[in-house]
């Protein structure tokens, strides 16, 4: 099988198998759609609400991407401070872990109250809060585990710390960074939807999910979940694409 065909065909085949199993499980158990909707129930819903799906998907997507962007900037900055300074690492770790252990669902009402009415900002903030932690940790580990010889090679020539960072520390950390970014992508979607569902403000896929719940339209709720999965996969592959450009060297030939 050729490379491209395998890369595209295999995932599609697997998705098709899962959808078929889902359809079969609902059919064989004779489940009514208010207990478990089947994929075939979702297609009409996608069509019926196609305009809302487009608008709300876009709203959810850009907020998630914005939250993720913020997480990249802040997470990398925190990771750099923790990677280069032992004191900062020891001081910040318990704080970060503690903050990360707080369920973000409980933070949503607080944030909604603090920044009342600023829906976009609130949503982005939650997406950011839930997704920056893995980025910060991976960048700090990448930097703090840099073998001293790498530093010495450039330092012995009189290079500054900034040069060492740009030429060696940063590129060497990229594989870890992208690994964390893949985790962060899916987390950011959770964050966006937490805000959209727990503190409804009528925007994004979360709002569509909520309206499905209110009107007891269970297939619609499932359709929203499926849409979220699709968006998550799409953003994930954007990250994979970027990873291939910037850290493709880290991928070894299979064998």
């Amino acid at each position: 099988m050729s490379g491209t065909l395998r890369k595209v065909g295999v995932p599609i085949l697997f998705i098709a198998i899962v959808l078929a199993l889902w359809e079969w499980a609902v059919w064989v158990n004779d489940l009514p759609d208010y207990r478990m909707a089947s994929p075939s129930d979702l297609v009409p819903k996608f069509w019926q609400f196609r305009e809302l799906f487009l608008i709300y998907s876009w709203q959810t997507l850009w907020r998630t991407a914005a939250g993720l962007g913020l997480a990249v900037v802040v997470g990398t900055a925190i990771g750099m401070v923790m990677g280069f300074s032992r004191v900062a690492r020891e001081g910040l770790y318990p704080l970060l872990v503690g903050f990360n252990a707080i369920p973000k669902a409980t933070v949503v009402p607080i944030v909604a109250l603090i920044f009342v009415g600023r829906h976009d900002f609130n949503t982005i903030l939650i997406a950011f809060m839930i997704s920056f932690f893995p980025i910060a940790v991976s960048v700090s580990i990448g930097l703090s585990t840099l073998e001293p010889e790498y530093r010495d090679i450039l330092r012995s020539l009189g290079a500054s710390n900034l040069t060492i960072f740009w030429k060696i520390a940063l590129p060497k950390t990229l594989p870890e960074f992208f690994g964390a970014l893949k985790v962060a992508v899916t987390l950011a979607f959770i964050g966006t939807n937490l805000m959209e569902i727990v503190s409804p403000h009528g925007r994004g896929l979360g709002a569509l999910f909520d309206s499905g719940r209110i009107s007891a339209d269970y297939p619609l709720m499932f359709a929203v979940l499926l849409m979220l999965a699709i968006l998550g996969i799409a953003l994930f592959y954007v990250v994979v694409f970027l990873e291939r450009i910037f850290a493709g060297w880290a991928e070894r030939a299979p064998g």
Binding site: E147, E149, Y150, K167, P171, K172, L174, A247, W249, A250
Partner: peptide
Amino acid sequence: QNPVLLEW
């Protein structure tokens, strides 16, 4: 001892 080549 470690050649420390830059993999990228």
